[in-house]
Simulated assay, not measured.
Amino acid sequence: MILAIDAGNSRVKWGWHDGADWASIATVPLIEFAASSDHINPFSITHGDPERIVIANVAGEGAHQLLVNWTSIFDAEPLWLHGEAERCGVRSRYDRPEQLGPDRWAALVAARAVHTGPCLVVNAGTATTIDMLSGDGVFLGGAISPGIDLMRFVLHEHTGRLPLQEGSYRDAPRNTLDAIETGCRHAQAGAVERMHRAMGGNPLCIVSGGAARSLLELLRLPSRYIENLVLDGLARIALSERAVTR
């Protein structure tokens, strides 16, 4: 069994993979995860001792220490994923591959496994990442922007009167809440569409993350939603490690 952990900026998601499919997946908000005591280890409840543990952590040092403590109950030594020059048929052109976020790298690996043509790999969460993957598996580069919730928050924090409440998307907004919601969603979709044009051709958009569905509603591009893209990539990486050591 593989234990894959995706510690993101807003939530922690983990899953138990049996080598063929997910046996279970769980998600908690990061603040709830950080507040848990040492007596409530979320990874020890089910499935026993994993053969492999693979972790993508972008939540900082505090989350790292919690993950170290809670995975230490198992015999397996965790693989702390970082960006790499090459893995599972994906090659990186990042200036310094090791600086690429592990969640982005895992998502690229997963995308390559499900689609062998060119694609945009979009993860819409606290930040929205838009990464270009060529048809021969080369990561060409990508963009990072604030996610839709962060856009709303920044508007509220740095203006005198804009409220921090969710509105509705409208073609022609006629109130402030709807104007904010519509503007933020246009910014998200517009960034994806510009990257799509920059890539050329007609690449598939593979979209994941907590805000993926609202983004997909506006995209007029060939798209596919994959719910657990980062976890899927982590599991594939763990399986590749297992194949090497056998």
Rank of each mutant, 00 (worst) to 15 (best):
A4D: 00
D6Q: 01
N9I: 05
W14R: 04
W16K: 03
D18I: 08
I25Y: 13
I25R: 13
A26T: 15
A26Q: 15
P29Q: 05
P29T: 05
L30C: 10
I40L: 13
I45C: 12
T46V: 14
T46C: 12
G48C: 02
R52W: 08
I53D: 05
I55D: 00
A59C: 12
E61Y: 14
H64P: 07
V68K: 15
T71P: 01
S72N: 15
I73D: 10
F74H: 08
P78V: 01
H82Y: 00
C88I: 02
C88R: 06
G89M: 06
V90I: 11
R91K: 11
S92L: 07
R96L: 00
P97V: 01
E98C: 02
Q99M: 09
P102S: 11
A106R: 03
A107M: 05
A110W: 03
A111S: 13
R112Y: 03
R112Q: 07
V114M: 12
H115W: 06
V121G: 01
V122M: 09
G125H: 08
G125C: 08
T126Y: 02
T129I: 05
I130N: 07
D136E: 13
G142N: 00
P146S: 07
V154D: 11
H158Q: 12
T159L: 02
L162K: 01
L162H: 01
P163Y: 00
P163C: 05
S168V: 13
S168G: 10
D178H: 09
I180V: 15
R185S: 03
A187C: 07
A189M: 10
E193S: 11
H196W: 14
A198Y: 04
G200L: 10
G201V: 00
N202T: 15
I206F: 13
G209K: 06
G210H: 05
S214M: 13
S214V: 12
R220G: 13
L221W: 07
S223C: 15
Y225S: 06
E227M: 04
L229A: 01
G233Q: 04
A238Q: 06
L239T: 14
A243G: 04
V244C: 08
